[in-house]
């Protein structure tokens, strides 16, 4: 779940697609748009995601 920093609305990836339909990029960019107010935030960093996964795997193996 993503929490919009502007209006506080909580939404998931599925809801983003519906609000991105009017955009020329059709949701293929690195931003996610709040379905409630339209505020955009960057998607979670892939690098951070990868680092977190690595850390989790390391913790599990230990």
């Amino acid at each position: 779940m993503i929490k919009c920093p502007l209006c506080g609305y909580e939404y998931n990836e599925d809801q983003i697609q519906s609000v991105c339909q009017g955009c020329p990029l059709h949701g293929k960019c690195s931003l996610v748009k709040c379905p409630n107010c339209g505020y955009e935030v960057p998607r979670q960093s892939r690098l951070l995601k990868a680092l977190r996964m690595l850390r989790r795997k390391r913790d599990e193996s230990e």
């Binding site: 506080g8 609305y9 931003l31 935030v41 998607r43 960093s45 892939r46 951070l48």
Partner: peptide, 29 residues
């Protein structure tokens, strides 16, 4: 009309994660 959520102290992990995401967006796009 806009819902105004409560004020809170920013969490360092959130701040760093958002900053990293924005920088990655900048570099990619």
């Amino acid at each position: 009309y806009m819902e105004v959520p409560p004020l809170r102290l920013p969490r360092i992990s959130n701040v760093l994660s958002k900053t990293a995401s924005r920088l990655e967006w900048y570099l990619v796009e």
